[in-house]
Design a protein around this nucleic acid. Structure first.
Lengths: 224, 224
DNA sequence: CTATAGCTTATTGTATACAAATACCTTTCG
DNA sequence: CGAAAGGTATTTGTATACAATAAGCTATAG
């Protein structure tokens, strides 16, 4: 992470995630280059990656804009994520190692602690949650699958989702993780896949509900 | 397609598809730049794209190599493709327009002609087949899905698959396409999805069988 | 007042020179 | 003879200047 293009990548990504660069905003390579303290060359590199990850969109004349997702887009992303992650769980059930199982349990324990002691520690929850899912992906042993999932999980909105969870939803997450571990213990891919599908679908509806009052969709001034 | 980076992209892609650049071969930016008649800058751009599409892999020290797929990799790609394309078909069944239906029928008619008159015209088959699937993808109305599918369908081996088909398999393809059209006519997403899954799985097994005896790979000179 | 043609400015694309990193080869020491 | 250290060559990364393209503005004609 020391190459200039990597620094530019993280920097821009963080600015998008933090809302510093708002959805729909046009971004110019030179401006970003100054913000990141590098030249345009590594910035262009970073933009290409962020474009592939759908953080950024380009119009027909190659101008770049911060991506802007509608609720429909979001549901679609969750749907794809559910499908892919269920498939990963199914594969993982047949391949997961003892070591990976141990790490899975350990992260889910940490999750339990994060939501158990008084006020839930969301950052900690998110962190261990991310690891939990990463291990399943690792156990599925498919690089392609990993790459695709990154496309639908690393979206700004998706990353913000868990912050919307109430305590009840956090507990459910924990329990679903426990059930996943059970399914893996039994090497039952169908079970694991089904639990995972439910897990992701619930996450989407938790998000949608938290936003039912706040339905406002942002403006897309960009030409298709 | 007139920008230098686009030309470099097509050129390199074609060289990989044709076998001119063999799997596992290390490729150097400057050499490619000379081959394409452009500077390294657009070549680097093209390499990034080809890397995202898994045509090219990079080792830990950023050297690039032509990707090399095992049979397991290939089956995994087909599995993912079956899942994603079935999902696309399911969505398409609910959204496809009259115009898109007409184009679907027209392409499938062309396919019929390509395999009907004496010696099958494989290039023509491939061309209309590609359009047929593209229309379904278009009708599914999901850009994300389209991007993901490109990752698993545009692989060198996948693109070569149809060349392995015997006449029997080409006919089956045509009939499966007919059944897809029927499913769309009835707006039956489950039906469409199931037919599509079978369609892709059969394609994989046709490929695998053709290679059980004859492991030699043929070259496809198909343009982007 | 509107629309359009032409000019001006803003933005991205490309080439090239140089810097940094890494692989490879050679030499030397155990 | 083998291994490790050093230096050299190869390859990729970055900065910068310039070219090409697209957007925006202004003036002019209808």
């Amino acid at each position: 992470m020391s190459r200039a293009s990597d620094r530019a990548y993280s920097h821009i990504r963080n600015m998008i995630l933090s809302g510093e660069l708002q959805p729909g905003l046009q971004i110019r390579e030179e401006a970003l280059a100054e913000l990141c303290g590098v030249s345009r060359t590594p910035v262009r590199d970073a933009l290409r990656r962020l474009e592939a990850e759908l953080f950024i969109r380009r119009n027909e004349s190659q101008r770049s804009f911060v991506a802007d997702w509608s609720l429909d887009d979001l549901e679609e992303a969750f749907q794809l994520r559910a499908m892919l992650e269920a498939y990963a769980a199914k594969r993982a059930a047949m391949r997961i190692s003892w070591d990976q199982m141990a790490r899975l349990r350990s992260h889910n324990n940490a999750i339990k602690q994060a939501i158990g002691a008084g006020k839930p520690d969301i950052s900690r929850f998110l962190d261990h949650n991310r690891h939990f899912h990463a291990i399943i992906l690792e156990a599925s042993g498919s690089e392609r699958l990993a790459g695709m999932l990154a496309q639908v999980t690393e979206q700004p909105v998706v990353l913000r989702t868990a912050r919307q969870y109430d305590l009840e939803n956090l507990r459910r997450s924990h329990h679903e993780h426990e059930e996943l571990v059970m399914a893996f213990d039994n090497r039952d891919g169908e079970w694991a896949g089904a639990v995972m599908t439910a897990h992701i679908r619930r996450a989407f509806h938790a998000y949608a509900e938290a936003h039912s009052s706040n339905t406002k969709t942002s403006q897309a001034d960009e030409a298709a």
